[in-house]
Design a protein around this nucleic acid. Sequence first.
DNA 1: ATGAAAGCGCTAACAT
DNA 2: ATGTTAGCGCTTTCAT
Lengths: 349, 349
Amino acid sequence: MQKKTSIYDIANALGITASTVSRALRGHTNISQEITQQVKDMAKKMNYRKNTVAVNLKNGYTKTIAVIIPQLNRQFFASAIDGIEEIASKSGYNVIICQTRNDVTKEKKAVQLLSESVVDGFIVSVVTDKSDYAHFRNVLDQQIPVVFFDRYPLASDFKRICLDDFEASMHAVEQLASLNKRKIFHFSGHQHVSIWRERTRGYLEGMKNLGIEVPKEWISENTLTHEAGVRAAEKMIRDNNIPDAIFSSSDHPLIGALFVLRKNGYRIPEDIAMTGYGNEMFTSYTQPSLSTVDQRSAEMGREAFVQLMRMIRGESIPDEIVLRHKLIVRESSMPAAAAGGAGVKKKPK
Amino acid sequence: MQKKTSIYDIANALGITASTVSRALRGHTNISQEITQQVKDMAKKMNYRKNTVAVNLKNGYTKTIAVIIPQLNRQFFASAIDGIEEIASKSGYNVIICQTRNDVTKEKKAVQLLSESVVDGFIVSVVTDKSDYAHFRNVLDQQIPVVFFDRYPLASDFKRICLDDFEASMHAVEQLASLNKRKIFHFSGHQHVSIWRERTRGYLEGMKNLGIEVPKEWISENTLTHEAGVRAAEKMIRDNNIPDAIFSSSDHPLIGALFVLRKNGYRIPEDIAMTGYGNEMFTSYTQPSLSTVDQRSAEMGREAFVQLMRMIRGESIPDEIVLRHKLIVRESSMPAAAAGGAGVKKKPK
DNA sequence: ATGAAAGCGCTAACAT
DNA sequence: ATGTTAGCGCTTTCAT
């Protein structure tokens, strides 16, 4: 295997120096048309490729950023990455993606590794926001910018882009209440993650504003998966404690509950209305279609990248950017009359 | 902003040389316990971080691979990346992800850029397999390994991991036929992409084996999106040309068709049975749940990475690895009796 | 067990 | 307009 050709090889072949070749290749002004052409021809002839690693070493940056997320397999994260990738590639940046699978150890390892001069910055949605984020503090200490989105650590010196989860949840609860639902249950997530806490807070505040007392059985903790939703619904039936409505912090458990409740003869939304969170693709495909909170994922991704760029350029940016949610009302929380025409679906966004 | 500390700084502080520091840091045998400890302490004290770019330049490789795919937002690709990422991170490799959004120009640009000493290898699912893959030939010429998966170019010197799309499609058609369906329509994709061609071939072969003539109106070309599925179903109704069953090369148009047909009073699967392709999450959430071909996405991703590693190590690998499909039969293609208990859903895998 | 020196490929400040 | 030189941070061969 022949060695790769470098600018020195081109220089030698042409009887000039490497600097000239370097300049010619980059279209520097102070190089004659003639030489420039010769260099380019020779480069092509010798099958020359720039060595980006050498350039990076010289420059001190890599034009690469890392995106660290819990999992790819969620509409929200997939779209957020879409948004990031879209402008990143326009700006000539590469994007390294790491899934933490909700494992703090993986998160630490990835951050540690990538912060060793591999990337110029991080866009992160954290596993947990409780206490254990020394690894990010560390990265910041090395002057590597970090922007958090959606799930952020609590410390004040971390920049973040997030949704108005609190308001969104209040909004969802109010909308359910507008259907004369009062016994509204809640599927919540781990309380050590910012977004789940905020959503639960919003639910509670919404209920409070409605003057509705919330017994603790109305809240189903750590109910974020399909299976957890199934279990929660089965418990409702077993305990003969059936709600008027459910507000879920995620679409996934809601689907599980939907199937169990429907199978047991409950009509959605007449008997039980439902609203989820995340605008997963499947929410417009179920019967009835599911109301859900859209998290503006692509915008969030784009915004995160834009802010990260500013930090990389040394500009100062706001500590927090809050995007406004979109409550998507579908059949599962429509007045019975309106939802009547079941089977009629709009195409998803 | 203070400059980052290098091994020279540590060496100076300790009155030793950089080579010793380098060796100590990597736990080289020939360095005394004592010095090793001193170096490590000093490194911590001076907040030293390895410069991966310098290491890469020295080593001539980056321990980074690129995954180039049409879009992230498909269950198949998301899971394939899951699979790749899983072992990649175990093997200490970073993964750069690029979406081509089905734009050959983007594909070329990304491949060109990343092949400039940025990555050690590529895992690719191509935009199109027709003629225009000089960019990959180019990469191979530079001794950078490439493994294709799912969608591959036709030339023989490209390695690939793929599904037995032809057999899978035949299988799906046979299964539909086993329900006494004979007028089986087909939603197909662009014929300039390997997988769509294979699936259509499998459909045709399956029909031929059943002794069923296929008029060309039975095949709906370029029907890969939700909207295209809606249009296709509307056309069936308009033309009063209703099938017994539909075999679709993608789950997405099938959903569109499902809603239109159901709204028009057709019962699924009694009047029209259906089978899709891709095992999107939503296929188990619809009513009826949709039969679909599972493409073994995670395995495919893992296999692609394993083969790529072998190529990187200089080992030779087979030209083609074919994974066996899984036909997932759900309510939309079950005998009417079995599908009777509609509303009962199994949780998705 | 440790040091000296060269070099990975490129760029840029400083000549001329 | 082109050349000279030094250096980005690390590893490694060859000494000692």
